[in-house]
Design a protein around this nucleic acid. Structure first.
Lengths: 190, 190
DNA sequence: CGCGACGTTGATTTGCCTCAACGATTGTGG
DNA sequence: CCACAATCGTTGAGGCAAATCAACGTCGCG
């Protein structure tokens, strides 16, 4: 677990074993079983979660009771609701484990301290924020330019083994199409 | 110009006059006239632009020759193509001045040096990357959940005087609707 | 003045949704 | 460990928001 985090952090900046040990003191390992919530809708998000193992989704339930999935996060990803975390406002989205999931929890307070104690962390989080922006812009590009059919093909070709880890109706919601129509799309592929 | 940048930077971290002076040495003031390109499609993006005055759009021309606007940027915004800038790959989008625009150009090399000479800058760019992510996620939320009619109303109510600075067909493209349909929507308001 | 860029209008088409009903799995308590 | 319920995926009929295509008005600019 410590080595996994260390390998991850060293992809973006240089950290000594002492740095890692210090960082580790401020993080709390927690496990969530399938369907458990890391964060509920309308709660204020006070932490970032580093996924050691498992799969998490972010989603929002609208007035009609319809679930709206907007993000999946897997191993070696930091997940949170940034809007809520940064602005300390109620989160529009919930974070829920799709599989049994173990994470390292970094609270706001812990991070604020760590940013000054280990300045390279500031760089790591700058870089992952930039990467998140890039990913979101690519998603935007895809949704603007392609039909729902192509969005599905794109998904199964870029992350082939991912589809099996997630129920169809969540994939449909993420792609912004109805489960019925996704079913029709799939029929035509075989 | 210097004070404008100083005021901006001090919103996110503390900078002395010497810091500002040093930063300023690494930035290059440039002006672009209406319709001029800050960055062309398929070029590699080597800089971030801080907009002192003016209005810039980011857009992509597809195989059919259709323009696809995905971003507008105004005074006191940093604009770039992050994907191209970070990964040094050809940019899918062009950056073009919609009005006569003056900017401060920060090259990759300048930024790399400045990050180490003035570490608070790392924080500033972490924060603006986080803010960009939040803005993109909000945009995603709006596009997922609302009709094109509502997207238009949302735009004109949140940034009322903005619509007059930009041609209709660019607004339509940004909202992902055809100019014809936007026209129909507008007819029903008056 | 005349040309090209921009906005509008109407007729037709289509991608995708809604609603309703029905199999196939999965999982859970008795 | 089985029975029954809940969850999940599929199929089909009908409907609507928004796209496409084509044509025309208008205004600003060289």
């Amino acid at each position: 677990m410590k080595t996994q985090l260390k390998d991850y952090l060293n992809r973006y900046a240089h950290f000594t074993d002492e740095d890692i040990a210090l960082i580790f003191e401020y993080l709390e390992p927690v496990t969530f079983s399938k369907k458990q919530f890391l964060l509920k809708q309308n709660e204020i998000c006070n932490a970032r979660f580093f996924i050691i193992k498992g799969l998490v989704r972010s989603f929002h339930v609208d007035e009609k009771g319809v679930e709206n999935v907007n993000l999946f996060a897997i191993e070696n990803w930091w997940v949170t609701n940034l809007d809520s975390f940064v602005n300390q406002t109620p989160s529009h989205n919930a974070l829920q484990a799709i599989e049994n999931t173990s994470v390292l929890v970094a609270s706001r307070e812990a991070l604020d301290i760590l940013y000054t104690k280990v300045p390279q962390l500031e760089r790591v989080f700058r870089i992952i924020a930039e990467k998140l922006s890039i990913a979101l812009q690519r998603k935007d590009e895809i949704f603007m330019k392609t039909s729902s059919k192509d969005r599905y093909y794109n998904l199964i070709h870029t992350i082939p083994n991912f589809v099996q880890r997630v129920p169809q109706y969540m994939i449909a919601s993420y792609l912004d199409i109805t489960p019925e129509y996704l079913s029709e799309i799939r029929r035509k592929v075989n």
